[in-house]
């Protein structure tokens, strides 16, 4: 049996009196597309924040490809191959789209020489998300949907083993979402994808497995059909969402 890419055990995080993530045991196999769903404030963003190191846990451990990364600073985790795209669009607004992606690319290059390699890598990532013709535009002047795509390109260009996407389709039009689903499928050929998503059709199309959070706890996990059939989930989430 192959070893999981990521496992967390007993992972918790308190904010004051509030337990945003409560004793989460979670594991992710390489090559998977995993969706995390759950109502607003369920602790999804906090959970992936713990995984990528933006937030430190109150207790519990995190394991990535066999190594304990619980106390590793965020930038070291990124170097190990955990890339994170922000829920709130967080591109460098005053830098060109090209520079945004180039920042990712240049970090992955170990030889300090070739300017050409940064250029090739950056343009490849921009092409992958369909923004190559916008390379020179300041990121802040791109349309909102394009900023989201740029955000994904920045994650992609890090050549991660695990790409974490926090509500990437939020604010995209239906047409854009369709292209996006195709893009994620393509990315998943090389990387494991962990995606937080509220848009159910997207989740059902993409995810191999789904993990459901509610008030900080993992309440269910399974393939899309199982989750659809799960009464507890329907009550906590789907019921609420579909009225």
């Amino acid at each position: 049996m192959t070893q999981p890419l990521l496992t967390t055990s007993g992972l918790s995080r308190d904010f004051g009196g509030l337990r945003a993530v409560d004793n989460a045991d979670f594991s992710l196999m390489p090559g998977e597309i995993r969706a995390i769903i759950g109502p607003n404030g369920a602790g999804k963003t906090t959970f992936v924040g713990l995984v990528c190191g933006r937030i430190l846990p109150s207790s519990g451990t995190i394991n990535f490809v066999g190594a304990d990364i619980t106390t590793l600073p965020a930038y070291r985790r990124v170097r190990l191959g955990i890339a994170y795209t922000f829920q709130v669009t967080s591109v460098f607004a005053n830098l060109s789209a090209y520079d945004n992606v180039a920042l990712s690319v240049q970090r992955t290059l170990t030889d300090g020489r070739s300017r050409g390699a940064v250029r090739t890598g950056a343009m490849k990532a921009l092409e992958q998300v369909g923004l190559a013709d916008r390379a020179g535009t300041p990121a802040g002047q791109l349309a909102y949907g394009h900023q989201r795509l740029l955000e994904v390109a920045m994650g992609l260009a890090l050549q991660p083993r695990l790409l974490i996407l926090d509500e990437p389709t939020q604010g995209l039009s239906d047409g854009e979402i369709e292209g996006f689903v195709a893009l994620i499928r393509e990315i998943a050929r090389d990387a494991t994808v962990l995606i937080i998503e509220h848009n159910m059709p997207v989740v059902m199309q993409l995810a191999h497995r789904i993990t459901v959070f509610d008030v900080g706890r993992i309440i269910a996990e399974g393939d899309p059909a199982e989750i659809r059939a799960n009464a507890q989930v329907q009550e906590a989430y789907l019921g609420a969402a579909h009225g």
């Binding site: 933006r54 600073p73 607004a93 990712s104 240049q106």
Partner: peptide, 19 residues
Amino acid sequence: RVLVAIRENEERTRMLGYD
């Protein structure tokens, strides 16, 4: 380029793997 990125958004720069 990294310095400018830090100026523009330090948190994002860190999450691209920069110390």
